[in-house]
Amino acid sequence: MANILVIADQQDGELKKSTLSVITLARQLAQRTGGAYDIAVIGSGVQGVADSLAAYGAEKVYTITAPAFANYLAQPYTNAVKALAAQTGAAFVLGSAGTFGKDLLPRVAAAIGAGMVADCVSLAGEGSTLLYRRPMYAGNVIATVRVNTPKAVIGVRTTELDPAETSGAGSPLEAFSVDPGQAGARFVKFEGTKSERPELTDADVVVSGGRGLKDGDTFFKVMEPLADAFGAAIGASRAAVDSGFCPNDFQIGQTGKVVAPKLYIAVALSGAIQHLAGMKNSKTIVAINKDADAPIFQVADYGLVGDAFKIVPELVEKVQALR
């Protein structure tokens, strides 16, 4: 009977690292409320994920694996989380603010009569006054909000929280069976973006390209060697994605992914506020742009004015020489 329920984010039986940062927030919340947390893993082929999550100090790790849950659909997943939360007595349901959580969590909030805090970056308030901080206006404002309902659903923006370390004895695993109810929808297909590179949201280094890279061919010709040299993930501005240089899930920004790597190298992108919203909490920012007045230089620790087609190959060569 833990008061907190963490919904794990996984894809094809692989745990998303963001889940570990959600566990970090769950631990803080458990401390504040004198409670504990359970973890739920939903999907097919998720036994490995559940096993690995058993090492993170949860009271229990629940698995929900009926065929109806093989592919994500909002209604069956909502029904499952609602039923599980009712059984465990959870007052808080937490998940990461990736597209899975963004789709599911509000629906869960409506189903259990809870207020929903989207993109929570940290807890605030003191003692029994529990408050939450979240960005608004593309990160130009940080709001402190209160949930007035006894229950709360929290979508966690995980970039500002360290991933949890393993702790305690292994949590018991329990299969939870639940009626998926009406789906009202059916899965048709998934076209994945395959990549050998680290996930954008997990990577220590992100190199990110913009419209200035001209086309898809030249985008990859410039960015791939750069990513190789730094062991980086590749991101992009919206303009680069819209122009078809690269897949949609490369997009970084207010409406794409939010990243905060140790090193972010922005290449031939101007630094619109919507882009900055997704990367300005990176530890070190490097900007390469031919326009000395580009707004990206205002957030860059190191700016280099010039032609990316000349600078990047030189940078790649010299970094390789260092290694």
């Binding site: 404002v141 940080i142 402190t144 909000v145 209160r146 620790d301 004015v305």
Partner: peptide, 20 residues
Amino acid sequence: LKVEVLSLEEPAGRKAGVMV
């Protein structure tokens, strides 16, 4: 209201960088 905004603040700015 289920969720109420109590206060707003501007996020900490980044310290100025350098051009190389």
